[in-house]
Design a binder for these strands. Sequence first.
DNA 1: CGTACTAGTCTTTTT
DNA 2: GACTAGTACG
Length: 797
Amino acid sequence: MSIYDRLNEQQKEAVFTVDGPVLILAGAGSGKTNVLTHRISYLIDEAGVNPYNILAITFTNKAAGEMRERVDKLVGFGAEQIHVSTFHSMCVRILRRHADRIGYDGNFTIYDTDDQKHVMKEVTKKLSIDPKQLKDREIMNVISSCKDELVTPEEFRMSSIGDFKKSKIAECYVEYQERLKKNNAFDFDDLLMKTVELFKADPDVLRNYQNRWQYIMVDEYQDTNTAQFELVRLLTGDRHNLCVVGDDDQSIYRFRGANIRNILDFEHYYPEAKVIKLEQNYRSVGNVLDAANSVIRNNSGRKEKALWSNKEKGNPIHFREFDNGYEEAEYVASEIRHSVREGNSEYGENAVLYRTNAQSRSFEEQFVRSNIPYRIVGGVNFYSRREIKDLVAYLKTIDNGRDDLAAKRIINLPKRGIGATTVNKVQAAADSHGISFFDALVRPDLTGITGATAEKLHGFSNLIFVLRARLESFGVEKILDEVLDLTDYINQMEVDSEEEAEERIENIEELRNKMIAYCESNDEPTLSGLLEEIALVADIDSVDDDENRTLLMTIHSAKGLEFKNVYLVGMEDGLFPSYMSIQSGDAEIEEERRLAYVAITRAKEDLTITYAKARMNHGETQYNPVSRFVREIPTELFDIAPRTANKRRFDDYDDSFESESFKRKPYGGDTGFTGFKRIPTNTDDTPSGFRRTPSSILGEKAYSDKQVTGVMPSKKTPEEQKPFIARKDALSGISKGSDLSAKGSDYGVGDRVKHIKFGEGTVLSIEPQGEDKKVKVSFDTAGVRIMYASFARLVKI
DNA sequence: CGTACTAGTCTTTTT
DNA sequence: GACTAGTACG
């Protein structure tokens, strides 16, 4: 009996074919990750390949982490030698070592979208481009596409001759790239493009990596762009020991430059390639799979595939129609609550998938009201939040003063009376002397700034020097506290509301947790290392599978995940497929269709599709028809079919919900009835059909005053219903570093405590962490959390 | 230099 | 509807 016995024939073939190019066409849910991990294990244990010679590239850090974990379990030892990483982090590592070969310093910074925008602002200003005629955003998109396709500024300039608009963009590209270079910065696209450039410019370096990585595997191959293809091609060299895994039907990143031809033409490029199709789906029940197949069938130019399953048919696909998005969200929340109470699923087995992040809001509101523990993935990236960007800008400036954008961001933050005029003077001095912004501001002899303003600048640079000294003496772990302390950031923060303040403080707390986590997982933590990790994380990376919370996310984020119950919401033409894609044509619609296919195939057992007749979109109400993708699913697969549903069928369904406190009424529409309306008749909007304990009823009652964030306690005494503590009080514990250990020491292990957001819980453990304490608390509704005493401000009850 | 108001944009997805 | 950048004014 070996670990390979449980694989099916095709999977075995994929695992055992280790030499030469291999294309694994892995349909949704066909055990792809399993094949990849077994293949790595086979390479090491059976084919005698040194783990050091194996490279596995994935799409997200989360996927990389999971793969490593699973390989670790299969392979006795040596798994840590395998290089598992994302394209971007692999490129960063390579560039850190060899960037000097292409004229950059290995100590480069990585610009995010926000930083790029700032640079582009400067560029268009300098080239006096009218922002009304040519938007920064458009220019950036074109440049990004160029980089995806490995088109250099010079090449693009040549190709744009004669085209006015294009040549304007080309000028911007040239200037933009020069500025990046001057700032010793790469943007995301550069990481790939410059690595290719490096490999082409320096064959020795390339050969070095070719020798190191003799067996290469690429996951999610359908999402690679031209630069990534080229990178892989170069690394593979003459060995051709390349195994790519993907599914052309799940290619959903065309907008980002993903080139579906990479997978469709693989055999063309490597004629000796072995093609293996994994067509058995182990994930979804028959009806779900049938629905997925009937949708994707409408696309042309696919690789021939026949996904099948020997699972039972399962439940029909649920289709529900609503008057508006509010009712849609209300329904989903009540279904999930129902399902969990009936013991049919756990919160974490349910997921809500939508096309756009903007849709998350109404669901979040309903989930809070219904006391459903949830987690929203994506939206505004954690590191794009203002307070986080501010603090990270401090960290960057402390780390090295070469990031001009970072220095400019914080020079007057908190307010020091340094304005635009001064900033411009300093920048001018920096430009004319070829030094960084920060270096220029400490040189009054170059800037010509005197008097009070010079004093202010001096104050700022002094602050940075002090912080650098503290970094030296206290280390990365403490540096954030020092920044908060010396800048009095939290008290100086401008906020509109108590809620906003709370949210920001929590984000800062989260940043602090992440920094500590980084320090703990690295033998030699450095500020540069931390900042690098920060630059390359995606939101999905921080999703913890064990949390038992319902996940809300875009379909894009859901790729690669699976859930027992999936709610695919907002299935309206104009929203999904998006209005843009409908305007653009077949290629775009096909991409949206693949997205629909990805969404449907996330469901293991139950799929619920919802539609709202009217929906609020940027402030105006839209009326959209049912998504064409829904109409591509045969009506037999639905319990209530779109458009053909009748009252009888609805009433059948509704029986289980009929109650005195909560009624759904048929809606008489002109297209024939397909939806229903709920009319809550009292404040307790829970269907009375559920068996509920008195205490949970009490909890629900307490909920009628509205809660805004996260998961709340199930029980509240009148005293606790007081509003949040006044802001200044709430914050004082954080900004004064010396107070830290004094705070929150009035409780011990086993005590009941209350957290401002997570509610009540029991203290599991307390351990000292420098001046602070790490407290582990099991919250009644928010699960087990580890937090820092100074931030958590737990109150003993 | 800082504030308050206005206009514009976003909303398709992200390493 | 929400957030941001830009502008006018004190």
